[in-house]
Amino acid sequence: EGYSPTLKWQQQQVAHFSTVRQSLNKHRNHWRSQNLDSNVAMPKSEDEEGWKKFCLGERLYSEIEMLPDNEDLGIDYIKVGFPPLLSIVSRMDQATVTSVLEYLISWFGEKPFTPELGRWLYALLACLEKPLLPEAHSLIRQLARRCSEVRVLEENKNEENISALNLIICLVSRYFDQYDLADEPS
């Protein structure tokens, strides 16, 4: 109560997400052919630890406190994780998208939700082709359930987290046709 989104908001997100996926398909070939920066080393599909570090950063992965970076040196993506840039996600085939989704959902099963995780989950969902393979179907249902569990436990009403969790639940349930997991209209 008080956390779930309106039906109108959910419908807007589904429409927006559909447009985003169309644009992604339109621009995929362009971004796939762009050179990656020299510091971007994408792990192999089966390298679970490598992908967790790649997406979330060594700082979060290792749960160690590090001193703030010197701003003059710019962002160290090895430490903070690489964001889901088009030049990166456009290179991922469906098997890799599904594998990385699995790794990050597994991570989320034990760790708190973070904006970095939210961005990657959204990007991977945008890359996930329909009709879903049975494995992907099960994975995204697991993801929506975990989002619901975490949302219930949000005590400080961190608006950004609630919003992000609502977004993921909405896309899984209403874009990927898992309507039994959808938030009821409020």
């Binding site: 927006h16 644009s23 762009q34 964001p83 889901p84 961005r119 945008a126 919003s163 609502n166």
Partner: peptide, 27 residues
């Protein structure tokens, strides 16, 4: 909308996510 533009930059998915998350506050 930016998603329809030919200038869909490298951070387009991140921007789309941030926009969607921010929209909940305004709903």
């Amino acid at each position: 909308q930016s998603e329809d533009s030919d200038v869909w930059d490298d951070k387009a998915l991140i921007k789309a996510y941030d926009k969607a998350v921010a929209s909940f506050k305004d709903a």
